[in-house]
Simulated assay, not measured.
Amino acid sequence: MSKYSSELKSQIVSEYLAGNPTAELSNNYHVSKKRINKWVQLFRMNGSQALKRRRHKRVFTQD
Protein backbone atom coordinates (compact mmCIF):
# COMPACT_ATOMS: atom_id res chain seq x y z
CA MET A 1 0.00 0.00 0.00
CA SER A 2 1.27 3.42 -0.91
CA LYS A 3 1.82 6.02 1.77
CA TYR A 4 0.74 8.90 -0.47
CA SER A 5 -2.28 8.87 -2.76
CA SER A 6 -1.91 9.63 -6.45
CA GLU A 7 -4.24 12.62 -6.00
CA LEU A 8 -1.95 14.15 -3.38
CA LYS A 9 1.10 13.54 -5.57
CA SER A 10 -0.61 15.21 -8.53
CA GLN A 11 -1.67 18.16 -6.41
CA ILE A 12 1.84 18.71 -5.05
CA VAL A 13 3.41 18.42 -8.51
CA SER A 14 0.91 20.85 -10.02
CA GLU A 15 1.56 23.36 -7.24
CA TYR A 16 5.31 23.00 -7.79
CA LEU A 17 4.90 23.59 -11.53
CA ALA A 18 2.75 26.65 -10.74
CA GLY A 19 5.75 28.19 -9.01
CA ASN A 20 5.53 27.20 -5.36
CA PRO A 21 8.97 26.41 -3.87
CA THR A 22 9.81 22.88 -2.79
CA ALA A 23 10.57 23.94 0.78
CA GLU A 24 7.13 25.52 1.18
CA LEU A 25 5.36 22.44 -0.23
CA SER A 26 7.45 20.22 2.01
CA ASN A 27 6.36 22.13 5.10
CA ASN A 28 2.70 22.35 4.06
CA TYR A 29 2.25 18.66 3.20
CA HIS A 30 4.88 17.12 5.53
CA VAL A 31 6.64 15.41 2.63
CA SER A 32 10.41 15.50 2.16
CA LYS A 33 11.87 17.82 -0.48
CA LYS A 34 13.71 14.88 -2.01
CA ARG A 35 10.46 12.95 -2.51
CA ILE A 36 8.73 15.97 -4.08
CA ASN A 37 11.63 16.43 -6.49
CA LYS A 38 11.41 12.73 -7.41
CA TRP A 39 7.67 13.04 -8.15
CA VAL A 40 8.30 16.10 -10.32
CA GLN A 41 11.03 14.27 -12.22
CA LEU A 42 8.78 11.23 -12.76
CA PHE A 43 5.97 13.50 -13.95
CA ARG A 44 8.22 15.31 -16.41
CA MET A 45 9.63 12.06 -17.82
CA ASN A 46 6.46 9.92 -17.96
CA GLY A 47 3.45 12.18 -17.46
CA SER A 48 0.67 11.81 -14.92
CA GLN A 49 0.58 8.01 -15.25
CA ALA A 50 3.91 7.82 -13.41
CA LEU A 51 2.29 9.14 -10.22
CA LYS A 52 -0.41 6.49 -10.08
CA ARG A 53 -0.05 3.32 -8.05
CA ARG A 54 0.35 0.00 -9.80
CA ARG A 55 -2.45 -2.36 -8.88
CA HIS A 56 -0.67 -5.62 -9.61
CA LYS A 57 2.77 -7.10 -9.50
CA ARG A 58 4.94 -7.15 -12.57
CA VAL A 59 5.82 -10.61 -13.86
CA PHE A 60 8.99 -11.30 -15.78
CA THR A 61 9.78 -14.33 -17.92
CA GLN A 62 13.14 -16.08 -17.93
CA ASP A 63 13.81 -15.11 -21.54
Rank of each mutant, 00 (worst) to 15 (best):
S26I: 06
A23D: 12
A23N: 11
S6K: 11
N20D: 06
K57S: 12
T22P: 05
R44H: 13
T22E: 05
K38Y: 15
K38D: 08
K34G: 07
Q11N: 15
F43V: 00
R44S: 13
Y4W: 11
Q62K: 15
K57F: 04
K57E: 09
A50H: 02
G19R: 03
D63I: 10
I12V: 15
K3A: 12
R53E: 14
L17M: 12
K57D: 05
R53Y: 08
A50G: 04
N20A: 05
Q41H: 09
K33R: 14
S26A: 11
K57Y: 04
G19E: 04
N46K: 15
L25A: 02
S26V: 03
Y16N: 02
L25T: 04
H56Q: 13
A23L: 05
N27K: 15
F43T: 00
V31E: 00
S14F: 14
S10R: 08
R44C: 15
N27F: 04
K9T: 00
Q62W: 14
T61D: 13
S26P: 04
S48G: 05
E7T: 14
L51R: 02
R53C: 06
Q41K: 12
L42F: 09
L25K: 01
Q62P: 08
E15I: 04
N37P: 02
E24M: 10
R54W: 06
P21Y: 06
A50I: 02
Y4R: 11
L25Q: 09
T61I: 09
S6Q: 07
R58Q: 10
F60G: 03
E15G: 03
D63G: 07
A23T: 08
E7A: 14
S10V: 08
S2E: 09
S32V: 03
L51T: 01
N28M: 10
K33C: 07
S26Q: 03
V13F: 04
K9Y: 05
A18N: 11
P21Q: 05
L17I: 13
L17R: 07
R54N: 15
V31Y: 07
I36D: 02
V31A: 01
Y29R: 04
F60S: 07
K52P: 01
V40C: 08
N37L: 14
S48V: 13
S5P: 00
L17Q: 10
R35H: 06
K3L: 14
R44A: 03
H56E: 10
R55D: 13
T22V: 12
R44M: 14
H56K: 12
A18M: 04
K3T: 14
S14D: 14
I12A: 03
L8V: 07
K9E: 00
Q62E: 10
N37C: 11
S6P: 02
Q41S: 10
T22Y: 12
K34Q: 11
S26D: 00
R58I: 12
I12Q: 03
F60H: 13
R54S: 14
E24S: 14
K38H: 07
V59F: 11
K34R: 15
K52E: 13
E15H: 04
I12W: 02
G47M: 08
F43K: 02
